[in-house]
Design a protein around this nucleic acid. Structure first.
Lengths: 149, 149
DNA sequence: AAAATAAAAGAGTTTTTTGTCTTTTATTAT
DNA sequence: ATAATAAAAGACAAAAAACTCTTTTATTTT
């Protein structure tokens, strides 16, 4: 579905947002630990998110990453996915055809159009804020039980 | 969504089935040409499908691949996907958690449960036969317009 | 100004996926 | 039996994705 990169991007964003809700700025080390991701790789991904203004990064002592409440309200999952995976998941053919369309449909075109549409709707209608509050309130988790320390 | 391997597997199966509907056995060269796939790689994939009894392979002159009408009726897409990609797409968490479940849900668990379920239903309810007849009747295509010779 | 902190940048490496090439085995027609 | 045909098998090779390490830049505190 998503690339590993994208999975880390989403999890990191949710964690940063949840900490920002408590007015805490977080560093790469903490983020990587909390989402069980490789630290240096996660740093690279955060660079991309930062360049796309999806997270704010502050250098130096007391620096780290944060997301303003207003931003996490206006940011939906699709923006994060697009920033790291491009718009493949939104438009690409299930069988990999370059020009799959209603006029030149692959055998799965109609069946997959609906699913792709559902995915798009979901990603566009889910805000970072709601995901962050779910985490903060303890309803959801960013690691599996056996992954935790 | 699917791996390249899986895309080729599905397309090859549909093409073989469509030709079998016209009592034609087809060779690797023809298959690869018709679905715009690398020939040797496609041969490897067909070995897997053959071992899983999803296609029949016949060696020697006049040999090639075929799928009996009865088999293409009873084979659904999920069997092909499982044979080459495993059951990842049916069970795995959208954020890659090992133990994502209703009891330990990732932030996207509920949203994705529905989509994963739709995908499973689709793959389990779509038979190779209906995909093959769609191709034979000229309603669907296995190559993009600009991919064709 | 200097030292400490923390992200950015760039140049790698490893692993996985995708794909190729050559040899072998099975089948069929002559 | 022999030659021809076509898939099977196995050992590689290339490309992409995932991931690391080192150096640089920006910021802040002393």
């Amino acid at each position: 579905m998503f690339s590993k990169t994208c999975e880390y991007a989403i999890k990191a964003s949710i964690y940063i947002a949840s900490q920002s809700l408590e007015n805490k700025r977080v560093g790469i080390k903490e983020i990587a630990h909390e989402i069980s991701s490789p630290e240096a790789f996660t740093a690279k991904i955060l660079q991309v998110l930062s360049k796309n203004h999806l997270v704010d990064s502050i250098k130096g002592p007391n620096g780290g990453f944060e997301i303003q409440p207003e931003k996490m309200r206006s940011t939906n999952l699709s923006a994060i996915v697009k920033a790291v995976d491009g718009d493949n998941i939104f438009i690409s053919c299930g069988l990999g055809l370059k020009n799959c369309s209603a006029k030149n449909p692959c055998p799965l075109h109609n069946q997959f159009a609906k699913i792709r549409n559902d995915i798009t709707k979901l990603l566009e209608s889910t805000s970072l804020e709601e995901l962050a509050t779910g985490l903060t309130s303890g309803l959801t988790f960013l690691t599996s039980i056996q992954n935790q320390a």
